[in-house]
Design a protein around this nucleic acid. Structure first.
Length: 650
DNA sequence: CTTAGGG
DNA sequence: CCCTAAG
């Protein structure tokens, strides 16, 4: 069981109607928040943190305080960006005020309690379990009341009016404890009450309103969210399960890598949607309301005070809800869920994961990124941020995925997956291209949502990293990346799609000799390898043939290194496969006739006869050499292609 | 990690 | 291209 202790902070979002709204204003409007320290059990249940854990958290908080200052400084500049960057959709309310008088003020941020409500047949998490009541906390009652208020027993019931403050948006934000820069917190008094202890520790903790509502997600969306959250795929179709896991993942995500204690700060707000509408929405769609985390209260004042804090890492994901969801959608989802419920445990194949990943990459037109430090970000409703539209080959930089759902977009934490190559390098390379262009700076929060387990598993072929960079503007004005654990900071200037496009189409051209020997694409793009298909260009084929001629068939890694340095997307395996194909092609053609015929039935790229003949030559040659060296042995395990070829010709 | 092979 | 078994 993971003994992660997480604090969830929900922030109440003020309604942000206009971009102009000042941060403060927004904050003021926010609703109170309730926090609770919880531990996630192995089975996914949330269990109230024990006193010891609370203490631990407290310590962590103290340790982190020192780090805050740096963060603050950065945040300041960027504050203005938020509006531009998040152009239309979102505003991040989480703000950090650079040190000012407010810092000294104590925030009464109270971490009170987090309630998880499960709809009817919740599985592991029974309402009882989830309800964390802290007897000592005087607020518990209030919070509960609030919660109850928000959580209708009957999901279908419309509650929009009743709790305007709730945002249907689902957000996941994470803020590290650093956010609480408050003057200091004394060591924890040994308070049994979590909320009390937390509050004492985090005097100036800024809070915004946020919620995690997964109710509206379809199974697939939930799965994606799951993947984004945990960095791994799930085939589970059970909504409740997914919701629960996601909620937990979100809860824990921020602290996992670095500290045990993290605070999630939320703030994603739908500018357009009125809370009631959203609430309604969520309620309506909450056919299976498994878990809701609501923020409960924090006075506006407190929130305001809290702004001083910076969150080193913050992640926000928001989902926009339709004002009026169509029932059909809901039904469909339900049906789907029902149908699939049975197959929950099947482990997804890597391929499946990849494909899904790709899919989502395409889906998400934009990746938004927010900056932790930006004063405030607000998500506005309209335009979608559309960034790279490169059919599936774009670089995935975002830590937050932008999804479109029923015409609304939302974001979820996104784990960057670069199949081959090193993401970080990529980022660096990108940065190098635009070192100076600093039109606007957006500070992005870097999250490391990946679970520890994931880290360990790095060995597996795919690299899964939570890199965490997000680019927000469609125009990609500027991205400042702050790497999480490594503490790497990078800035990148203006980026445009072309630059980001890892693979210029021209490569696909035939007979592109010019490409030979010219590393056209910077290594940066190399990492972004397209998963499924990438046509081999003539020049690549030539290089391959050359490489085989030089180094010999079978020395794929060497060939790749030496001859395909500029085509990093070709792996040694790819070379091998291609060679195999070439051999086949050459064989097929050889007997019959060559040349002119080539062009006919070639499905893909017509391979020039010259190349085919070369291939044949090489094949023959290798076959001979192998046989020479050790006839038997080669026959036994020599590459089949060569062997076949050889036998045919010899 | 690299190769070889099957899918 | 993907995936995996084998060195």
């Amino acid at each position: 069981m993971e003994h992660s202790v997480a604090t969830i902070i929900d922030t109440a979002s003020g309604k942000m109607k206009d971009d102009e709204e000042s941060n403060d204003k927004m904050i003021c409007d926010s609703e109170p928040v309730v926090y609770q320290l919880v531990r996630v059990e192995g089975d996914g249940r949330l269990v109230p943190a024990t006193d010891d854990e609370v203490m631990e958290v407290e310590q962590l908080l103290e340790d982190k305080k020192s780090e805050l200052t740096s963060v603050k400084a950065v945040g300041h500049d960027e504050q203005c960006l938020s509006n531009e960057v998040f152009s239309n959709k979102f505003h991040i309310s989480g703000t950090v005020q650079s040190g000012n008088a407010d810092n000294s003020r104590k925030l009464n941020a109270r971490l009170e309690e987090e309630r998880l409500l499960l709809s009817g047949e919740s599985l592991n998490c029974s309402p009882k379990c989830m309800a964390m009541e802290d007897p000592t906390s005087d607020r518990s009652n209030t919070s509960k009341a609030c919660i109850d208020k928000h959580e209708p027993e009957n999901p279908s019931r419309e509650r929009a009016e009743s709790s305007p403050e709730l945002n249907s948006i689902h957000i996941v934000e994470v803020g590290t404890i650093e956010a609480c820069s408050g003057p200091t917190n004394k060591a924890a008094t040994s308070r049994s009450s979590i909320s009390e202890s937390c509050s004492s520790l985090l005097p100036d903790f800024s809070i915004l309103r946020g919620e995690i509502c997964l109710d509206d997600f379809s199974i697939r969306e939930l799965q994606e969210a799951f993947r984004a959250t945990f960095g791994r795929q799930t085939s589970v179709k059970d909504k409740l399960w997914l919701k629960r896991r996601i909620a937990m993942g979100l809860t824990n995500s921020c602290h996992v890598p670095t500290a045990r204690f993290t605070i999630k700060d939320n703030k994603i707000i739908l500018s357009d949607l009125k809370e009631p509408a959203r609430l309604q929405q969520s309620m309506i769609e909450a056919e299976s309301l498994s878990m809701d985390i609501h923020a409960t209260n924090v006075s506006p004042r407190d929130i305001k005070n809290c702004l001083n804090n910076q969150m080193e890492f913050q992640q926000v994901s928001g989902k926009r809800l339709r004002v009026l969801p169509s029932n059909d959608d809901v039904k469909d989802e339900n049906i789907q869920m029902e149908q699939c419920a049975a197959k929950r445990m099947r482990k997804p194949t890597k391929r499946y994961i990849e494909e899904l990943s790709e899919l989502e990459t395409r889906e998400c037109t934009a990746k938004s990124y927010y900056c932790v430090n930006s004063e405030q970000s607000q998500f506005t409703s309209k335009a979608q941020i559309m960034p790279f539209h490169d059919g599936g080959t774009h670089i995935r930089l975002s830590s937050t995925r932008h999804e479109s759902l029923r015409g609304f977009s939302f974001q979820v934490p996104f784990v960057l997956r670069a199949r081959r190559g090193q993401p970080r390098k990529n980022l660096m390379a990108l940065m190098e291209y635009h070192p100076n262009a600093i039109s606007s700076i957006v500070k992005t929060a870097v999250m490391i949502p990946v679970l520890e387990e994931d880290k360990e598993n790095g060995s597996s072929s795919r690299e899964t990293r939570s890199v965490p960079v997000q680019i927000l503007n469609t125009n990609l004005s500027y991205v400042k990346i702050v790497a999480g654990e490594e503490g790497v900071e990078m800035d990148c200037g203006t980026l445009n799609c072309e630059e980001l496009d890892p693979e210029p189409k021209k490569l696909d051209g035939i007979g592109d000799t010019a490409c030979d020997n010219v590393p056209k694409q910077p290594a940066a793009k190399a990492n972004v390898r397209r998963k499924h298909h990438r046509a081999w260009t003539l020049c690549e084929i030539r290089k391959l043939v050359d490489g085989v001629a030089k180094y010999g068939a079978g020395r794929w890694s060497e060939i790749r290194r030496l001859s395909f340095a500029s085509y990093s997307y070709r792996t040694s395996v790819d070379l091998k496969d291609k060679w195999r194909n070439l051999l086949r092609a050459s064989l097929v053609q050889c007997p019959t006739e060559k040349e002119a015929n080539n062009y006919r039935k070639q499905t893909s790229i017509p391979i020039p006869a010259s190349i085919l003949s070369q291939v044949r030559e090489l094949a023959k040659l290798h076959a001979q050499t192998e046989i020479k060296v050790s006839p038997r042995k080669s026959a036994g395990h020599g590459s089949s292609t060569v062997h076949r070829e050889g036998s045919g010709f010899i």
